[in-house]
């Protein structure tokens, strides 16, 4: 375990913590702030993988641009002043489904990787490992791989959730 592993673990913990912050903050703006932290943490993973360019682009596009977009959307669309609270139960269920799907995808991708022992982020060549990871997700022996059904399921979940939200609004 060298300095990079320690940095990676610290950063991963930071991402997970800020992800939890996004989910469990009561106020939308606080969630957005946590989201900025989480996206910057993801950017730092690119830095650890030696991709400075991706790091910078991730920070400027997601940490800056998308964050402002979300903040504007959060402020301009909430009709209650400062007290927009999620419906906790629905939210937790849909969140759990998405997390399960993402975990499945991650495990599937990581499962077939040649990871050497005692090294959590790379073999000899970090770029090759990343390449292989995405190849594993995109294509398998059967054909299209896991990513297409994954996206289909994600959109289906989003569609169902939006239908449910629309029905709820009509009831109100």
């Amino acid at each position: 375990m060298d300095a990079f592993d320690i940095l990676f673990i610290i950063n991963a913990g930071f991402i997970v913590l800020s992800g939890l912050g996004v989910v469990f903050s009561e106020r939308v703006m606080q969630s957005a702030l946590w989201l900025i932290f989480s996206l910057v943490g993801v950017a730092n993973v690119f830095l650890l993988a030696n991709s400075e360019y991706l790091w910078v682009i991730q920070i400027s596009v997601y940490g800056g641009g998308i964050a402002v977009l979300l903040l504007f959307a959060g402020r301009l669309t909430s009709n209650e002043e400062d007290h927009f609270v999620f419906d906790r139960n629905d939210f937790i269920y849909s969140f759990a489904i998405v997390v399960l799907m993402l975990a499945n995808l991650l495990i599937y991708g990581l499962d077939s990787l040649p990871i050497s022992e005692g090294n959590i982020y790379s073999t000899d060549d970090g770029n090759l490992l990343l390449q292989e990871f995405f190849q594993n997700i995109w294509q398998t022996d059967q054909g299209l791989g896991i990513i297409l059904p994954f996206i289909a399921l994600l959109f289906l979940a989003a569609l169902l959730a939006s239908v449910k939200l629309a029905i709820k609004e009509e009831e109100e």
């Binding site: 703006m29 957005a32 702030l33 900025i36 910057v40 400075e52 360019y53 790091w55 910078v56 682009i57 920070i59 400027s60 940490g63 800056g64 641009g65 964050a67 402002v68 903040l71």
Partner: peptide, 20 residues
């Protein structure tokens, strides 16, 4: 290697921080 892009990226955090 990303010198000037780095400065732009760092500055792009400023608007959301100011807004919050």
């Amino acid at each position: 290697t990303v010198g000037i892009l780095y400065i732009f990226a760092i500055f792009s955090i400023f608007p959301p921080a100011m807004f919050i």
